[in-house]
Design a protein around this nucleic acid. Structure first.
Length: 853
RNA sequence: GCGGGCGUGGCGGAAUUGGUAGACGCACUGGAUUUAGGUUCCAGCGAUGCAGAUCGUGGGGGUUCAAGUCCCUCCGCCCGCACCA
């Protein structure tokens, strides 16, 4: 039996699409626009099957919307700056640019072999000066608008690599690559003022209707809005104030201490004359900021000896501590402690024997006997021991206390956010240079626009540790653009999230001399359907939302939200294997022995590990080449779309891909050697068809309706199941019946169209074999005939006392009485009713009839 | 700790949103074709039972003519955030 020659056929259609420029788009067009985008990849080397799931989904959406008549923008590019290129440069003695270009070439070819309908004329790579020059300009505009600034801040510092690490790059307190214990270090860094948009970013989440609930919640939590008050405490005997932030101003009468962050300005000043405090602060700073370190660290404080005066009652004074758990970055870097109503404050108070004063009485509790034990009371209740707040609820007391604070001029209501400004400086070579110059005389001087781009030097040395830009012999030495004196370039580069925060705009006019043209962005944006991994829920997706607003503030564009619809796809997983020595093995290094056990190439037993996300480190990857060479791109694509719902993880198995391959060949046989002669294209259907042929036509139109609905709702696995049902129906078409040929033609044509977004090469080949001239990709999406898509006969479940006893085949929309009498006439029903008349009859039209005896 | 999600055959999953539980597929079993394997075709495939039938969607309880779906409660797994004042 001839097999489907995927290699030949796929290459043929890829060539035809390319020659016809089938997927090139321009704006404006008469049709409505649709922008589909998959999160662009980092060119890390080679793609494996795990990488292409979201591209397959994006391509499905692009081709489907195109068939529906939209002018579809579906671009692809490369998020090309990043640390792995530098690591490779060091390990393999190559240049990051070269390594990156090589990977891009490989991965581009891989994507092209998958047959994705990208407009390759719009391809971009963020490491090219033609791309990054625009973000240097944006940065200068942000700087002028006060949205970028430089400040000293505490960062994770890797003492071996000599660079700042992001929080994500610190694992168990150690650098992810060097394994060195990460230090806190105070460094001057560039920041983007994302907090200026905190409120707006939070409020607008409500309007992101086509975003997953999960992602919206994660962003909400990340921004972390808290309403409260800033309150000033006077320091007794000094002309000094400490401002604290609190959300529990209602519990001020329960205050028993103040705590300052180790990096609070007052703490630092006190430390100058208090060696004990200085030592305590130094120790706090030695500890990293990672989760594990924080978890292990006990709550510790240092009593400064100062006393703070209660804002409502000058006769009350509380001690002032410096405490390791108070964050300088949140609120004001100082808190007041109310141990009775905050668990952390309670633990601190118990340790340092500070008073625990309950001021909120739980409902029904006896004020004379209520006491705090091991657990702080954080629920609602009635205020007591609190002067003017007595007898108020927590909410009322918050309002009253805030009003009093404001009336006394001791503070004000305020809102605090968890969100911090985005530190964008990295001590790295393979990134976009930050376009500023440091001049002894003039301070920080922006690089004049005429001098952009600030290009990376090509002759760099990775042998020395640290930032190659910094120890490059000449690059950083420049003249100050303002005074002309000797000055130094900024040698930090941008965080690579900078590039990905606006690439979707560049795709709209990728060859424009400016970052993007207003017209193109006006036409294409926002992205109608964005597809990517949930791991970017708060990073890239939040940064991009911020960037869009920042660009709007600088006059670049006129909208706020970049992504109207977001879909987060699940990962592709695969079994892991380990050799006797504990080394990971690739799936193709593992074979079954005669007894059915698994062995490696030397015949030694192999341990089967957990099902895990495909990753190079665990070697549980299946190369894209292997699969495409053996089965073709379409088979891989259909596998990635079938079985698992797109948002859930998918397990890749050899048996699964074999199953899809069998199905591909089954479809292929139907067009290669049709079981009955097909009339020429466009031949009309006979007027009168026998019922069994009409049934097949119904199956065709039901499939069209169901698949269309499923694709609209991102239920790709179900759409595949519907298409397989259609395949069955066509196979069962009675060959001898009148009209069988024309109906088979109709069925195969629709099948080709429905498969088009999923298996585009097979679909084109089918279309051609069916005698059509043009491309199936250029055909409009089929429409279901509503009369055929709806059944004329329906199966009605007949229940007696809620249990299924029989089914009835009846005409659709038959009257209640007729359904009831048909049910009552059934012998099984008569038996179960045992001659009695039902007490109650429930008829659900076209579904069920329930007879209650 | 806080927030969210999930739990259906041996497995991935479906169930018109309260109306025939298990679509579609994987694996498996039997048969046909084949020298054989593979492919292909036919049949079977939740559990118990010879059968009529009974039970069955993590456990328990409830609402309803009717519950995988709604409510309460417990159990288990997964993800995110986490000294945030």
């Amino acid at each position: 039996m001839p097999r489907y020659d995927s290699q030949k056929i796929e290459a043929k259609w890829q060539r035809i699409w390319r020659e016809r420029r089938s997927f090139a788009v321009s704006e404006p067009a008469a049709q409505p626009k649709y922008y589909v985008l998959e999160m662009f990849p980092y060119p890390s080397g080679k793609l494996h099957v795990g990488h292409v799931r979201n591209y397959t989904m994006g391509d499905l959406v692009a081709r489907y919307r195109r068939a529906q008549g939209y002018n579809v923008l579906h671009p692809m590019g490369w998020d090309a700056f990043g640390l792995p290129a530098e690591n490779a440069a060091m390990a393999e003695h190559t240049h990051p640019a070269r390594w990156t270009e090589d990977n891009i070439r490989t991965m581009r070819a891989q994507l092209q072999r998958m047959g994705f309908a990208y407009d390759w004329a719009r391809e971009i790579a963020t490491c090219h000066p033609d791309y990054y020059r625009h973000e240097q300009k944006m940065f200068l505009d942000f700087l002028a608008a006060g949205l970028a600034y430089r400040k000293e801040s505490w960062v994770n510092w890797d003492p071996v690599e000599n660079t700042v690490l992001a929080n994500e790059q610190v694992i168990d307190g150690r650098g992810w690559r060097s394994g060195a214990i990460v230090e806190k270090r105070l460094l001057s860094q560039w920041f983007l003022r994302i907090t200026a948009f905190a409120e707006e970013l939070l409020d607008a989440i409500g309007g992101l209707e086509r975003w997953p609930e999960r992602v919206r919640l994660m962003q909400e939590n990340w921004i972390g809005r808290s309403e409260g008050a800033r309150v000033n405490f006077d320091i007794a005997g000094r002309d000094e104030k400490v401002e604290v932030f609190t959300t529990r101003q209602d519990t001020l009468y329960g205050a028993s201490f103040l705590a300052l962050s180790p990096n609070h300005p007052l703490a630092l000043r006190l430390a100058e004359r208090d060696p004990g405090l200085a030592a305590f602060i130094a120790e706090c700073n030695r500890l990293g900021t990672s989760e594990a370190v924080i978890e292990a660290a006990e709550k510790r404080g240092y009593n400064t000896g100062l006393e703070a005066v209660h804002p409502f009652d000058a006769s009350r004074k509380v001690p002032v501590y410096v405490a390791n758990f108070v964050l300088m970055e949140y609120g004001t870097g100082a808190i007041f402690g109310c141990p009775a109503h905050d668990q952390r404050d309670l633990e601190f108070a118990r340790k340092y024997r500070l008073p625990v004063i309950p001021v909120v009485l739980p409902p029904g509790a006896d004020p004379a006997r209520f006491a705090i034990g091991e657990t702080a009371y954080v629920e609602d209740g009635t205020l007591y021991h609190s002067d003017f707040l007595d007898r108020l609820s927590v909410a009322e007391a918050k309002r009253a206390a805030a009003a009093r604070i404001e009336a006394l001029g001791r503070g004000e209501r305020t809102v605090a956010y968890r969100l911090r400004d985005w530190g964008v400086s990295r001590q790295r070579y393979w990134g976009c240079p930050i376009p500023v110059i440091h001049c002894q005389e003039c301070g920080i001087v922006p690089v004049p626009e005429a001098d952009l781009p600030v290009r990376l030097p090509e002759d760099v040395n990775f042998a020395e540790p640290g930032n190659p830009l910094d120890h490059h012999p000449t690059w950083k030495h420049v003249r100050c653009p303002r005074c002309g004196g000797a000055a130094l370039r900024e040698t930090d580069t941008f965080d690579t999230f900078f590039e990905s925060s606006w690439y979707f705009l560049r795709f709209c006019s990728p060859r424009a001399t400016q970052a993007f043209t207003r017209e193109a962005v006006q036409y294409w944006m926002p992205v109608d359907q964005y597809i990517g991994g949930v791991e970017h829920a708060v990073l890239h997706l939040l940064y991009s939302r911020f960037f869009t607003r920042a660009l709007k503030a600088c006059g670049y564009l006129d909208f706020d939200e970049p992504f109207a619809g977001l879909f987060t796809q699940g990962m592709v997983c695969h079994q892991t294997y380990r050799s006797e020595d504990g080394d990971w093995l690739y799936p193709d290094e593992v074979a079954a022995d005669l007894a059915g056990g698994l062995v490696d190439r030397t015949g030694r037993p192999v341990a089967v590990g957990r099902l895990e996300k495909m990753s190079k480190s665990k070697k549980n990857v299946v190369g894209l080449e292997t699969i495409v060479d053996t089965y073709g791109a379409d088979t891989a694509r259909l596998y990635l779309l079938s079985d698992s719902p797109p948002e859930r993880d998918l397990e890749w198995t050899a048996a699964g891909i074999e199953g899809i391959w069998r199905y591909v060949n089954r479809i292929w046989r139907m067009v290669d050697e049709p079981p009955l002669p097909l009339p020429p294209p466009g031949a009309p259907l006979p007027a009168a068809l026998p019922p069994e042929v009409v049934a097949v036509r119904r199956a065709i139109h039901k499939a069209i309706a169901a698949v269309t609905d499923d694709l609209d709702k991102f239920r790709f696995n179900r759409a595949v199941a519907r298409i397989r049902e259609l395949t069955h129906a066509l196979e069962e078409l009675p060959a001898a019946a009148n009209g069988a040929g024309p109906v088979l033609r109709e069925g195969l044509e629709r099948l080709a169209q429905l498969l088009g977004p999923m298996m585009p090469h097979l679909a084109e080949e089918m279309w051609e074999r069916l005698g059509h001239e043009g491309l199936v990709a250029d055909q409009p999406w089929p429409e279901a005939d509503p009369d055929l898509a709806r059944d004329e006969q329906v199966t009605i479940a007949v229940q007696v006392n809620g249990k299924l006893r029989a089914t009835l085949e009846l005409p659709r929309d038959l009257g209640r009485d007729a359904v009831e009498s048909a049910a009552l006439a059934l012998p099984q029903v008569m038996r179960w009713l045992d001659g009695r008349a039902p007490k109650k009859v429930v008829v659900v039209p076209n579904r069920v009839v329930n007879l209650v005896a």
